[in-house]
Every structure is written in structure tokens, then in C-alpha cells.
Amino acid sequence: MSGPGLKNATIAAGAVMVLSVVALAVDYAVMRGWTPASDAQIAALQEKVQRDAKLAPVLAAEQKRIAEFNRARRARVNWLSLVLVGAAAGFLGGAKRLLAGQARPPVRVPERGPSAVWPRAGRAVAAQAAAAAPEIDLTFVDGLIEKEGRGAEAAIPILQAIQAHYRYLPDEALRRVCHLTEISPAQIAGTSSFYSRFRRSPVGEHIVRVCHGTACHVAGARQITDELRRELAIAEGEDTDPSRTFTVEEVACLGCCSLAPVLMVDEHTAGKLTPATACDALAAVQPGERA
């Protein structure tokens, strides 16, 4: 059961518990005052019956009524006690899990293989992936595998399609691939960390690929990358800006060497850049970004 549902159920059980305690207490208080009175009534009736035998049916009726009333009360008390015990058990169990849940997240059991098959994903990345994970719809992966086949040689096309669809390789999708195909977690971990196109962490809305080929290097690609990182306030060791709009990557060569230095925003290429015009090139996909 998920977090909010559990909490609501616990509160309901607590409420039921409190209500049953109150009902039992009221019942007890009322009965305490009433029982002596009914005893006295019976005694008075018995006396009258001794004097006048015609009243005997009245006494019998009265006795029957009181016995009936007492049996109903016992049944009511039993029933309420059972509810109380049940509600108390539910409340205590729920409260315990809620308190434990605050201390550590519930452990998700991987479908296959140990969870440590993803060596490159650092702790921060794993946490990010976990935060974004519940939203992932894996029907795409199922359809993809139907199309590409289940053999080991389909690994790269499958990873490419997953990357194109989710824009990175989510752990859940990779587990699903391992589960449904002959591709092993080791092969996935190996290939996805070997090729530079594959990413294991989510990306910003747009990907900026700054070319660092030979021609771009001599034309000042380093300055372009530095300026973009500065302008977008990308922290050291990160590749995405705090608003997660742009991810800046360095790539080996985009093959537009005569326009160096070059960058590519999503599918849009811009060339003959200077540090000043590099930022304007980003505006092509995000006009509001640099007003």
C-alpha cells in the first residue's frame, strides 16, 4: 500500500478505536444506573404476585423483557470489544509502518539480478532516477522488444530506441529489457557505459552538443563550452542547469568543420560561433530563455 493510503487507513482505525471505547464507556455508565432500578422493580412485582396471583403473567413478561435486554447488552459489548481490538491492531500496525517509513524508504525488490548491476550510476543519479521513476510507462519497452527481437545482438538498437524515447536510459526500462530478452544485465551495463551516446541520468529539456573536434578546438570550442556553462550557471561536475532546461555535452565531432566552432541544440545546428553568439544559438529552441 502506498504512503497516503496507509496514512488515511491508520487514522480511520484510530477513530474507530476511540469511538468504540466511548460507546462502551457510555453503555457501561447507563447500565450501571439502570440495573438496580430494574432489580427493584422485579422485587416489587414478586411481592405483588405473592399477594395477587393474577399478576404472575406480568412478572413473567417483565422478567423475560429484562433477560432479553441483558442478553442484547452482552452481545453489544462483545461486538464493540471485537471492533475495538481490531481497530487498535490496525491503528498500531499502521502507525508503526508510518514511523518506520519516515526513517527509510521501502525497499523495492528488483525483478531480476542484484540491484548493484548498475555500476556507473552514482548515488545522486540513482536518487534522481528513483524520484522520477514511478512515472515511467514501460509499455514502450514491451512494444520495442516485439519489434527488435529478443536476441543479444538487438541490444544496441534497443538501447538507442529507449534513449530516443525517454531521452536517457531509465533503470526500470533496462530491467524490463533484461527480464524480457536474452540480453543480460552485464551486457546492458557493459554496452551502455561503453558508448558515449548512452546516458544513465535524466537530461534537461534541450540537449546542447558542443563540438570539440579538431577544427572547433583550434577555433575556440573550449571558450564556447565555458561560456555556456557560466551563462546557464551549471555547477562543477554537473551537465544540466538548475532549471533543467539545458544539458550541455561535449561531443567529438559534428562534421561541420568548416563552420567551426559549432554546436547543436537538439537537432538544430549553429556555426561560426563566438562566446556571445553561442548563448543566442540556444534561444533558437527556447526564445524566452534569454530575453
Binding site: 577544427a215 578546438h217 567529438a252 565531432c253 568543420c257
Partner: peptide
């Protein structure tokens, strides 16, 4: 798989 940085013959 024209990977040489500074080459774009195959692309073109």
C-alpha cells in the same frame, strides 16, 4: 562511422 574529429567526407 566517421569518428575522426575534423573529418566530414562520409557525412557529405
Amino acid at each position: 562511422d566517421e569518428g575522426d574529429p575534423g573529418a566530414f567526407m562520409d557525412r557529405l
